[in-house]
Design a protein around this nucleic acid. Structure first.
Lengths: 190, 190
DNA sequence: GTCTATATAATGATAGAC
DNA sequence: GTCTATCATTATATAGAC
């Protein structure tokens, strides 16, 4: 994953992976059927983290700072797997099996995202959610796109993924959500 | 560009490009130094279109429908060059020269984006722009990320880039801009 | 400018010993 | 499970004739 994150999947050969892992190419092919299989495994590990990352405190009602924490955790998560998000379209185009799998997990993730938004609404953090289901979908989609793309976008612009970069990303998400925030919460400092 | 859009740059060899162009591989290398050079040329053609696409009517004040038209034109433009946006990070990582060039053009494009937003504010379409320069930057960045990523995102989710897909993209951009729209303009149907 | 032919190198992947 | 050795294929890129 480190190699893929740093150089992109196309620039990293199976020989490189084997060398970095400290094993022989032959041994690598004992553990993985082919290169696509390695990438699929990395995707699965990524999917597996989704359930734990996008989770609210179970012992109390979520508050605004939970929202910030969630956004931050999300960005870190995406950054950790940036090889995937930086060339997702190319990866999915080349591997139909991975594409199907991603789209299934994406739908699940999207539903989870919407649940989170609704949970923040129920707890009074977001008091002015869009009235129609359709608009709520648009809002969810908006959050999804920004979540998924902001860390890579940061890299593209030449900036680094630092605390400051994350802060800028939170500002973006806040600008989307502010019109839906409870009145008292809006003044919360970044 | 068609091959790259359909299969991704890594999956398309120079031999494929030559065959699709109806010339020999040797001839292709007479016209282009190497594969990166081909990609750089495609990027340059893309950059060249930016000035013509992101442009307001010169003979009158821009109105709300101009904003929608601009967003639509933008999405179409991105879609036409989706090979670039679908694997931008990987492409820039592998070609420092391209990275530098992209970042220069990106800064220029970002400044143009901000000018457009200000022009819509000056003409009364956007009446409630964020008060501080900092917030205006966040809004601009937000529009930029969505512009750049929505068409590819549409593809990733399994949807097609059709009139309907574009309409959904406009809805996204509208949700970002609505809090800043003039009151009378908000009721405008999609 | 365009071609054919080819050099060179790397890649993904396998065979088979241990 | 791990290795060495190697294969077949493919890709980029060049040489040189026309």
């Amino acid at each position: 994953m480190r190699l893929f994150n740093d150089q992109g999947t196309a620039a990293v050969s199976t020989n490189h992976v084997a060398a970095a892992a400290g094993i022989s190419p032959g041994n690598l092919y004992y553990h993985f059927r082919d290169k696509e299989d390695i990438i699929r495994e990395l995707f699965e590990r990524m999917f597996a983290t989704w359930d734990t990352v996008y989770r609210l405190p179970s012992n109390r009602r979520p508050i605004l700072s939970d929202l910030d924490a969630l956004i931050t955790a999300n960005y870190r998560q995406i950054w950790r797997h940036r090889f995937a998000y930086g060339e997702m379209a190319a990866l999915l185009r080349g591997d139909p099996r991975l594409r199907t799998r991603y789209q299934v997990m994406r739908r699940r993730g999207y539903a989870g995202f919407k649940s989170l938004i609704k949970a923040f609404a129920a707890s009074g953090v977001l008091t002015a959610l869009p009235p129609t289901a359709r608009e709520l979908n648009v809002l969810t989609e908006l959050c999804w796109v920004i979540s998924e793309q902001w860390p890579v976008n940061l890299e593209l612009s030449g900036r680094a993924f630092t605390a400051n970069g994350i802060r800028q990303g939170i500002a973006l998400m806040r600008m989307v959500l502010t019109p839906h925030l409870a009145r008292g919460a809006r003044a919360d400092p970044l």
